[in-house]
Amino acid sequence: MESEFINLTAENLAREHLCCIIRSRTAHPGVEAKRRWLADRLGEGHVFRKLNARATAFIEYAPLETAWVPIVGENYLYIYCLWVTGACKGKGYGKELMEYCLADAREKGRSGVCMLGAAKQKNWLSDQSFAKKYGFAAVDTTENGYELLALSFDAAVPQFAKTAKRQEIDRQELTIYYDFQCPYIEKSIETVRKACEADGIPVTFIQVDTLEKAKSLPCVFNNWAVFYKGKFETVNLLADEAYLKRILKK
C-alpha cells in the first residue's frame, strides 16, 4: 500500500491536487492560497501525504516548533488534519496515514505526536476516537472543552500556550483570526463578509501571517478562530449563514 501514497514536495506542489478541493482545469483561489502557504512550510519539515489518486485521503503534520498553532513543547509533531472521506473510507487508508506519521516521528527521534481535540467531537477537527485507538490522550484542556491530545514516546508532553487559554479579546465586534492553511478559508471569509455587509454587522478579519502570531493567539486555533462580544466561539469554519446567525444571536 506504501506505493499508493505520495508526499507533496517543492517539485510536485504546483501540479498535484490538494485533496480537500480537487480542481482539474480552473484555478481555485483557496487552493492557490494554500499552495503558496505550503510552499513556505515544506522547507520547515511540514508533511502533506496523500493517496495518489483523485480522492480525499491525506494527513498533514509539522514539527510542533514550526506548527502554526498556540501549542508549545519540544520535539513533537503536530497533526493539523487527518481526513479520509467518500469512496476511500473503509479501506485502511486512515490507518496507513496515521502509522506513517507515527513511524516518521519515531525515526526522527521525536518525543511524540499531538493534535487538537475536544471533550466532544467537533466539526473541522480530525476524528479523535480514531486517534485514541493509537494511545492519544488528553494532556491539556481549556475551560470550554477543547483538549490537546498527545501520544508520548517518553516523559515529555506539550501544552497549550498560556495565551490560548485566555479565550477573550478586547474587540466586541465579530472578529475572525485566520491563515491560508485550509483551502476553504477564502470561501468562509467571503460568506461571512457578504452576510455581514447585507445586515450591517461590523466584522474584523485578522490574518495570522507569521509563526509568532500563531503561537501567541488568544484561543485554540487550527487555521480559523471566531470571537464575538469579546468571547471565543469556535474553530469551525462558518461555511453557511445559518451558523453565523446562531453566533450573532448570543
Rank of each mutant, 00 (worst) to 15 (best):
M1N: 08
F5Q: 14
F5D: 15
T9R: 06
T9D: 10
A10C: 06
A10M: 02
E16Q: 11
C19F: 01
I22R: 12
I22P: 01
I22S: 04
P29T: 04
R35L: 08
R35Y: 00
R36I: 07
W37K: 07
L38G: 10
D40P: 01
E44K: 13
E44V: 00
F48N: 14
R54V: 01
A55E: 15
F58Q: 10
F58C: 08
E60G: 07
Y61N: 09
P63F: 08
L64T: 05
V69I: 13
P70K: 10
P70C: 12
V72P: 00
Y76D: 03
Y76F: 13
L77S: 14
L77Y: 14
I79E: 05
W83K: 15
V84S: 10
T85W: 08
G90C: 09
G90S: 10
Y93I: 09
Y93F: 11
Y93Q: 12
Y93G: 13
K95D: 13
L97Q: 15
L97F: 11
L97S: 15
Y100A: 15
L102T: 14
L102V: 14
D104F: 02
K108C: 13
G109E: 15
R110D: 08
V113T: 05
M115R: 09
A118I: 06
K120E: 14
Q121V: 07
Q121G: 02
K122E: 14
N123C: 02
W124K: 09
W124M: 14
L125F: 04
D127S: 11
Q128F: 00
Q128Y: 00
S129L: 10
F130K: 07
A138Q: 05
A138M: 03
V139T: 06
D140F: 01
T142N: 10
T142D: 11
L148R: 02
S152M: 09
F153H: 02
V157C: 06
A161P: 01
A161S: 14
A164W: 04
K165A: 06
R166Q: 12
E168A: 12
D170C: 05
L174C: 05
T175V: 04
Y178P: 06
D179E: 11
F180K: 03
F180W: 06
Q181F: 00
Q181C: 04
P183L: 03
I185F: 01
K187R: 12
T191Q: 12
V192D: 06
K194Q: 14
C196D: 04
C196L: 06
D199A: 15
I201N: 05
I201W: 02
V203Q: 07
T204F: 03
T204N: 13
T204V: 08
Q207A: 10
E212T: 12
K215N: 05
K215T: 03
L217F: 04
P218N: 13
C219R: 03
F221E: 07
N222M: 06
W224A: 03
V226D: 12
F227N: 05
Y228N: 10
Y228V: 02
G230E: 12
T234W: 09
N236D: 15
L238A: 07
E241W: 01
Y243S: 04
L244R: 05
R246L: 07
R246F: 00
I247N: 08
I247Q: 06
L248R: 08
K250C: 10
